[in-house]
Design a protein around this nucleic acid. Sequence first.
DNA 1: TCTGGGGTCCTAGGACCC
DNA 2: TCTGGGGTCCTAGGACCC
Length: 423
Amino acid sequence: MFALVDCNNFYVSCERVFNPALCNRPVVVLSNNDGCIISRSQEVKALGIPMASAVFKHKDLLEQHDVVLFSPNFALYGDMSSRVMNTLGGLLPDIEIYSIDEAFAGLQGFRRYDLGELAGRVRDTIKRNTGIPVSVGVGPTKTLAKIANHLAKKDARYHGVCVLEHEGDIRKALGGVQVGDVWGIGRGYDRFLRSHAIETALDLADLSPEWVGRYMHINGSRVQQELNGVSCLSLEHVRPPRKSICTSRSFGKKVTKFGELENAVGSFASRCAARLREERLLAGFVTVFVYSGSFDNPRCRYKGGHTVAIPVATQGTLEIVRCALDVLKEVYRKGSAYKKAGVVLSGLFPASASCVTPSLFDENGIFGRDSQALMQAIDVVNSRYGSGSLRLAVAGSSGWKQRMEKLSPRYTTCWEDIIAVKA
DNA sequence: TCTGGGGTCCTAGGACCC
DNA sequence: TCTGGGGTCCTAGGACCC
């Protein structure tokens, strides 16, 4: 059996932990640039405001109900996530951290336990230790554990815990779940299945496997088997090695000047290089992409991107920024108004590996022409004084800066922001 | 006025090899 | 009249996840 532990309204719940006055008020957390709604409290869901929709579309409704808005505070959410995962790991040792707010757990060691009681204990302990409310779903496959979790969240009668163990219960539950709510069925397959009158998870489970294989390929077949209790997806204890690192942002206003775009791409490339060193990796390729506004006149839309190989795989900021700016010159088109840009590093492998192919002509190793001491100094200064404290002149923040108007304090990761409690 | 940011995997088709 | 059989690699696009 598998359990899926998923935090309720995670980003909103993090804000509420340090500001309990928000607990019975409608709250949302916005995306970068304060553009979209990416986390909603129960009260906001009840207003019918959908996930990931644009704020300006709901302006009146948000004002009318006095909804509290937050800019995203990922420093806080990341730290709260590790608190939740640490507590969970202490209760259920066999876990896979699946995303910032959810984890699977293998329950092989708990065969003789009452799984409902165990799940309830997990829920109560995480709430007590971290302040974050979670829901727990239990089932014989990961996909069924997801379904159980979905039910535990949706139906208050479950009190946040749902165990699907026996076939009759499972089929009954599947009959009440929309096919588009099944893990692995996204917008595309939802539309396709509904056009064939397949409405519920049970309808999908009962289809002929040949038909599913033909039209939904290998992943669709796995989803179907998992719904029927055949486990195809095992617990992944170690994260598979990362294949790419991406930093991209939408701009606070449209950017037309090459110099401003250069500042943005320079800082994205610097951020990517810093993450590369954090994870002790080397990169072999740099991609730069730029978009002009996609919601305006579609005729003026421009999307440019290009990838180059770095001569010798590196983790040095100077080398990577230099490559990225060269690529930017190729993809920049004068006259376009840019709304978004990004840098992607790929061809990654561990810096410790002996598989680096060095340059025939240059003995500088994995930092390219950059000095290792310089990179270390930059990383140390930025970790002590905040990222961006020490940066390249080209990695400026003029012009393209994002809106972040409703940011909460970094309660758990910054000394100045720690809450003072008065008796 | 205003529309997120980060990932992974699979498939089809084309180019190329012998 | 008749035109092989076996591969690999790369890319674009589409699907999905949070």
